[in-house]
């Protein structure tokens, strides 16, 4: 009951927005080519997502791209970050080279990737990778650097081998940082795929949304927007849930 009450004002706000949207479009105050009525959008969603299933191909391909780019950046970020965190030599090579490229907006590499690999999947996956790698590298690296020195001393005095040290101290110690990096980059992966699909793609839900906008089919475009929001929320929720699972000893906020 208490929970419901605290949700009240938010629900009212959303209802007001929906009503205003419907009202100003149905009355013709805002022309339909500018903003379709909410009911039209919902009807379109029913058509595209329930009656017809052609959109699922686009949705699927986008999810694959997001997942692949995200996984790639996670794998490389953690490996490079761990290397730099554990070895001075790796640090002295990786940190200056990676931080030099860091301020470049990574989407600017998209045309280059297209020149290299054509308009296929690799170019888009690489853009997500390029964009998210830095955050994951930095988080892993600083996560390792921030491990309490006393844990390492304790492990050393217990006689841990190098493998045991990494497995039981370094990895769990830096895991909260890695996970927070993953949580930051998860929604960004969706953002970047949408951008990449607008610039260089022939399919995908971002491409669909862009295409519908260009054809002034705004109801369809809004359906695309909604689908993207669902993908983004779901992806974020999955990453958060897995993260909480993996760091079960951390206090949950």
């Amino acid at each position: 009951m208490e929970r419901l009450r605290s949700l009240g004002p938010g629900l009212i706000s959303f209802a007001v927005v929906a009503l205003v949207w419907e009202g100003i479009t149905q009355s013709g105050f805002v022309p339909r080519y500018f903003l379709p009525p909410l009911s039209t959008v919902l009807a379109e969603a029913w058509l595209l997502l329930v009656q017809d299933s052609s959109l699922y191909g686009d949705i699927g391909i986008s999810i694959v791209r997001i997942g692949a780019g995200f996984a790639l950046s996670l794998a490389f970020g953690v490996v490079c970050g761990t290397a730099a965190g554990l070895s001075r030599r790796a640090e002295s090579f990786l940190v200056p080279s990676i931080s030099t490229i860091a301020p470049v907006p990574k989407v600017a590499f998209l045309p280059l990737f297209v020149v290299w690999f054509g308009i296929g999947e690799l170019a888009k996956i690489l853009v997500v990778f390029a964009n998210n790698f830095y955050q994951l590298f930095v988080n892993t690296f600083s996560g390792i650097k921030e491990i309490d020195q006393r844990y390492l001393w304790a492990a050393a005095s217990m006689g841990f081998s190098r493998y045991e040290l990494i497995r039981y101290v370094v990895l769990p110690g830096s895991l909260p940082y890695i996970i927070s990096g993953a949580r930051i980059t998860a929604p960004v992966a969706v953002v970047i795929i949408v951008l990449a699909e607008m610039v260089a793609a022939r399919n995908g839900i971002g491409f669909f949304t862009y295409q519908m906008a260009r054809d002034y089919r705004l109801a369809e475009m809004f359906v695309g927007l909604g689908v993207l929001a669902v993908i983004s929320i779901a992806f974020d929720a999955i990453v958060s849930a897995v993260g909480r699972r993996l760091t079960h000893w951390e206090p949950t906020s």
Binding site: V17, V191, V194, L225, L228
Partner: peptide, 19 residues
């Protein structure tokens, strides 16, 4: 009233608003 709206609008990947 405002916070839920603003947080809700966050859920959209804002790049998708470009078109």
């Amino acid at each position: 009233y405002l916070m839920p709206l603003l947080v809700g609008s966050q859920a959209f990947p804002r790049s998708a608003l470009l078109p």
